[in-house]
Design a protein around this nucleic acid. Structure first.
Lengths: 354, 354
DNA sequence: CCACGGAACTAAATCGATTAAGCAACAACA
DNA sequence: TGTTGTTGCTTAATCGATTTAGTTCCGTGG
């Protein structure tokens, strides 16, 4: 009951192993008659090539690596943003005949573990896609020396074989802030992510650029930093609103943090959008279901994944994809933003309650 | 700049390839002196074993397969339930020294594609974990003939090498219905999943058992079938509530569908939990953030994944894990359930509005 | 009649590990 | 002194594909 090999087919067909290999690979130097006989037998025996053997000789595994980086045990796949990106990545790979191997580099990746590149080398992975890489990752420098293509999301690296995909954060955030300003808001806060994510810098910059363009003065007390989670977003928002009760709108750099803002607002007795407008970032599935449904910047997550796959594949084929691809994030206006409320009665109550 | 092989190390150390292999694998027939010299050189050259070569000769790849089944292109990883299961699965595999390869069998899997087992064969995958398998899958029978261990989630199969993990749906649903009955509800509806998922049958059975035990008559018009999505859940709920306006509580067989029920209730002007109590199933992250926060059955998703990995690994080691492992789902009471409201004023309005 | 070319194959090397079997050197023991 | 055992290696086969460099046979043109 062991698996069928080329040899089995060769014996049954009365030809050499080479002939079978070439017939199955579609080389022209096998007669049509022999080829069809071989094909029939291969099919009868349900032949499946041993890819380890093929990999060994061709030095190509047909495998791309996916690294889902995260600090906590439960983090990684469960993040509502990752799922669709991975779907797009995997679909595209599968379409092009590649398989995907997933590596997990949990917990503060210490240098005692194997580097990302070493893991790739062992499995002869042809290219890798890294999600969740931070600027303080100890293997960052190592990555830039890679000889296999590496695509990161939202995190450009300075290597010959490193590429990145992401959204145009500058213009995306700009449109969100403009939307709020158009509604009449002037006191607009930002709940940003931690600065070890390079998107955070870009989104803050987008925020400042927008304020400049709109001639709204920048106020550092309207800037808070959180950790991209709902809990963190809530906490950051609460201390910000208590500090600046005249804030009428908040831009959160992720939908999850926006959810936290929504919850914080509820806790302070503020009605969204009457007392406070909230804009998120990502357009995760949850965003449409929150109450009120969240106005947010839609990241084309599936396409981000697809693009990453395409870049890896083309780099593997010796082509030179652009080192950075930026997709556009579109503002989706739902019900969490509105004109600022002049009276704002709830605010007083909150202040007392606190 | 090609990769280091055993041969490179052997030459540098002045020994045979075998000696290097045995030294690195910790065999006792290598002197301490030679071993440490070899180890040092291996380290200097940053040796990484070529796993394809090892796989070929040992016939073991050290890879487990994950199949994320789904009909739509975007489905699969993005499902809020899957993420934590996969996290648990991958963490456990990584812990035990296995790697994970992910296969996608999108779209109605037609028999023209390779079967799940064929995909495993090619890559010498040692065992596989299937998520989202349906009773109408064309490869179901094929799976039962597997010679490598297969673990399914929520879907027992009748093969020597097939195993399953899941939650004890019967008792879980029972506790949810009892919770509603304890609050005073008698007209309790169920928004179930499609019947191609074997959990749906079990959950419906749990519902009926509970009604029997609680001496509440079963009413078929309080049963609706949906597709596990929010949209489908909403639609199913709306037609059910319009049919049976005296329904005071709904049990939804997934949180996503419960979200749909919440939205439907809002649309009909019903306040949750005053006018309608809602219980979900899964305890996805979203459940805690909805308004009101959802009472639901917590599936230990991470543990489900871990357990699946453990079962695969032990089966690969020749042990015989139980063919079915059931974990307990615990009721988490939040704010979407309460005593039924006697007056129920909104209901009239709705009926007119409709 | 011989040379040449093309069609249709085959033989053998190769990829990089693991492992069964064997061997040299030396010690221990009878 | 001869036998046996142990230690520490090495030789060579093997896994299952791909690929380079032939080889054989046949037809055709000179």
């Amino acid at each position: 009951m062991s698996r069928t090999t080329l040899k089995d087919i060769a014996e049954k067909a009365g030809v050499s192993v080479t002939a079978v290999s070439r017939a199955l690979s579609g080389y022209p130097d096998i007669s049509e008659e022999t080829r069809s006989r071989i094909l029939r037998i291969a099919c009868e025996l349900n032949y499946q090539p041993n890819i380890a053997a093929r990999t060994l000789v061709t030095q190509k595994s047909g495998v791309m690596g996916l690294f889902v980086l995260g600090r906590e045990k439960g983090e990684g796949f469960s993040h509502p943003f990752s799922g669709q990106v991975i779907n797009g990545f995997l679909d595209e790979l599968t379409e092009e005949g590649y398989d995907m191997m997933v590596f997990k580099a949990n917990r503060p990746p210490d240098s005692t573990n194997s580097s990302y590149l070493d893991l790739c080398r062992r499995r002869m992975v042809e290219g890798a896609f890294l999600m969740g890489l931070r600027t303080d990752d100890p293997w960052l420098a190592d990555l830039t020396t890679s000889t296999i293509p590496i695509v990161t999301i939202d995190m450009p690296l300075a290597g010959d074989m490193t590429f990145s995909v992401g959204c145009d954060n500058l213009s995306a955030v700009h449109s969100a802030i403009r939307h709020l300003a158009d509604l009449g808001h002037r006191r607009i806060g930002i709940v940003n992510g931690y600065k070890q994510a390079s998107v955070s810098l870009e989104r803050l910059q987008g925020y400042r650029n927008a304020l400049d363009d709109l001639e709204i003065p920048f106020d550092p007390s309207l800037v808070a930093e959180a950790d991209f989670t709902a809990k963190g977003g809530k906490k950051a928002f609460l201390s910000m609103i208590d500090r600046s009760p005249d804030m009428t709108a908040v831009f959160a750099a992720s939908d999850l943090m926006a959810m936290g803002v929504l919850e914080g607002a509820r806790e302070r007795g503020l009605t969204v959008p009457d007392d406070l407008s909230v804009v998120g970032f990502d357009n995760i599935d949850m965003a449409a279901m929150s109450s009120p449904p969240l106005t947010t910047l839609d990241q084309p997550r599936y396409e981000l994944g697809q693009t990453a796959a395409d870049m890896l594949i083309s780099a593997c084929n010796g082509e030179t994809p652009p080192s950075r691809v930026l997709l556009k994030a579109n503002l989706i206006v739902r019900s969490s933003t509105a004109e600022p409320n002049k009276r704002r009665p709830a605010r007083e109550v909150v202040q007392k309650a606190h």
